[in-house]
Design a protein around this nucleic acid. Structure first.
Length: 570
RNA sequence: UGCCCCUUAGCUCAAUUGGCAGAGCGUCUGACUCUGACUCAGAAGGUUCUAGGUUCGAUUCCUAGAGGGGCAACCA
């Protein structure tokens, strides 16, 4: 009587929302902003996008989609020294590849005029002034976290003088660093950011979009919130380290007179085990040649993951599962790998490839016979169909890992006197081990059971192990690049004094196998095709490196491997 | 030693806003299997950072403390 399952409160799959989505839902319910939810993804074009950005992209574009709002892509290009069109192009490509389309494409550098007008209006209201102290003097005047700052000698310049100076700054009359525009707030404010923050600095530099039109450039705090406001953003999502900036954000949009201005919400930036998500550090890896470029398949960049073979669906799925919160978070790489496998498992065809070939001769198989075995491309639980033919002959290759001369108890692969099943083929038994002078195993001599072509033994005997193989004569030679985590410890930055994250680079992050053997059925597939190499992992033929003569495969991710765990345990 | 933020299972997050602490991933066990994969079933895993307080009742509210993080760039 107690098990009246029908009565259970059908836990309506209530959309579990994070705190940001709660706020946005509330915005919609109350009409707080008087407009549909509007977000933006605002990268500075000074590097390639990485997984951390993917989290932000999924959040910003996701919210726009879910609430019928809009999301802009805005380049926060206010620093001429670091930015470049090549990054602008890469970022657009990566966002689209991830599956998102912006409602508007904007550049903060297009707001320079508008921002300058706001600057003049602040001066006119006595809310901003031109400071002519040098960098050190300004820093000293700001005080410390435990002591108040002190007003500098230029703080009380007249509006006329400030306006004149600001206009001459813009006109290019002054050298870099001689003057700066500051908001006039409070040098003793408990929030350091509010101690007369710098708004505009002089930089006689070439900007990749504005050329030499401008010699004054707005700083982040001045440009960011106002750019949001200009675009009619409702919620400005950023990472936790900007928490203290919220106060100046609010101050500026208010002083600039925006109605229903946007509001900043901070969330935790993503940190991933065994890798680094910092554009500055990734740039170092590129510049110092530790990787081949921003799109090196070991890089946590979108471009690197794409080249590795990861599909955008997996990245989006991953971003959804990690959620968003206000607490610093280091996510296990296993969670990402799970998302990648989960995505690929249902999508890609199976194929057999022997990474470390060991020759097997079937001594009782006819010399010249080549059979054509039928092999389904998907397992029973993947709702896809298709199959290919696999040649089978007297000489085969199997993987060295699948043979042990003196195996432990639970090793159910090939060993002297033991029988295994060849995937899609026959049962074979190892009779003889051939070694070279150095004592290395170079060939196995086996017999096959002709009655087991179905994979079943007519007498009903059970065979524990099934291994993959290829026919030696027909197999294609290929290169396989086995990628592993870039760093050898979970937190690459956790190093002894005097060292840095470079010292924790994993020397085994790339292992090249120059001569692997793959079944011939893949010969005519388009380069860039993804596969599961059965029992080995997921792979993609790489467009950048493959040639018609020799395919090059990247390992996207290995299979979950409980045997490896068993071995590790001893 | 100022201000602000954070602390719930190994990890990431929940807990209908004060009412029996849950999910996914990971781990382990078993079932299934021509992939040691997938799938399925189950288990272990918690002093909700600590100490007080308010309350019939606190993960939730208050106070103090501890630990972690952010802020003193003419970077973003």
């Amino acid at each position: 009587m107690s098990d009246s399952a029908t009565e259970a409160p059908e836990s309506t799959s209530a959309p579990r929302r994070d705190f940001i989505r709660e706020l946005v839902a509330d915005d919609v319910a109350t009409g707080r902003f008087g407009r549909a939810p509007a977000t933006r993804f605002p990268p500075e074009p000074n590097g390639f996008l990485h997984m951390g950005h993917a989290k932000s992209i999924c959040l910003n574009f996701g919210i726009a989609q879910e609430f019928g709002g809009s999301c802009n892509l805005r380049f926060d290009d206010t620093n001429p020294a670091t930015e470049d069109v090549k990054y602008v192009e890469a970022i657009q490509r990566d966002v689209q590849w991830l599956g998102f389309q912006w409602d508007n494409l904007f550049y903060a550098s297009d707001y320079f005029e508008k921002l300058y007008e706001i600057a003049e209006s602040l001066v006119l209201k006595g809310k901003a002034y031109v400071d002519s102290q040098n960098e050190e003097e300004i820093r000293a005047g700001r005080g410390t976290v435990t002591s108040a700052g002190t007003p500098g000698p230029y703080r009380d310049r007249t509006v006329e003088e400030n306006l004149d100076l600001l206009r001459r700054m813009r006109a290019g009359e002054f050298a870099d660093g001689t003057h700066v525009l500051r908001a006039k707030i409070d040098l003793a404010h408990v929030n350091m950011i509010m101690r007369d923050p710098l708004l505009i600095r002089i930089r006689h530099a070439h900007h990749y979009r504005r050329g030499n039109d401008w010699c004054i450039y707005p700083l982040y705090d001045f440009a960011h919130g106002l750019s949001d406001a200009i675009e009619g953003i409702t919620r400005s999502l950023c990472t936790l380290e900007f928490k203290d900036s919220r106060e100046i954000y609010d101050w500026l949009v208010q002083e600039a007179g925006f109605e229903h201005p946007p509001t900043q919400i901070e969330f935790a930036r993503l940190e991933l085990d065994y890798t680094i998500l910092s554009k500055r550090k990734l740039l170092r890896l590129v510049n110092e040649g530790h990787v081949t470029g921003w799109d090196d398949p070991r890089m946590p960049t979108i471009a690197g993951l794409r080249r590795r073979g990861v599909r955008p669906d997996a990245i989006r799925e991953f971003c959804e599962t990690i959620g968003v919160a206000r607490k610093d978070a280091r996510v296990e790489i296993a969670a990402f790998e799970h998302a990648v496998r989960n995505d690929l498992n249902m999508e890609v065809p199976r194929v057999l490839c022997v990474l470390n070939p060991l020759k097997v001769v079937l001594t009782n198989y006819p010399e010249d016979l080549v059979e054509d075995l039928d092999a389904p491309s998907f397992p029973h639980d993947v709702p896809k169909t298709g199959s290919r033919r696999m040649p089978f002959s007297r000489e085969l290759y199997v993987d060295r890992d699948d043979f042990m001369e003196d195996p432990p108890k639970k090793f159910y692969r090939l060993a002297p006197g033991k029988e295994v099943r060849l995937r899609f083929g026959y049962l074979i038994t190892c009779n003889e081990v051939v070694k070279n002078d150095a004592g290395e195993v170079i060939e196995l001599r086996c017999t096959y059971d002709p009655a087991t072509r179905s994979g079943q033994a007519p007498d009903g005997r059970k065979v524990q192990g099934t291994i993959h193989w290829v026919s030696a004569a027909q197999a294609l030679s290929c290169e396989v690049r086995v990628y592993d985590r870039l760093f050898s410890q979970p937190d690459p930055d956790a190093v002894p004094e005097g060292q840095d994250f470079i010292s924790t680079l994993n020397p085994q992050s790339l292992v090249v196998i120059p001569d692997a053997k793959i079944e011939p059925s893949v010969a005519n597939d388009p380069i860039g095709s993804r596969y599961q190499f059965e029992r080995t992992g997921y792979f993609m033929s790489e467009v950048e490196s493959s040639t018609p003569e020799k395919l090059v495969f990247n390992r996207i991710v290995g299979m979950r491997d409980s045997w490896a765990k068993e071995v590790k345990r001893g």
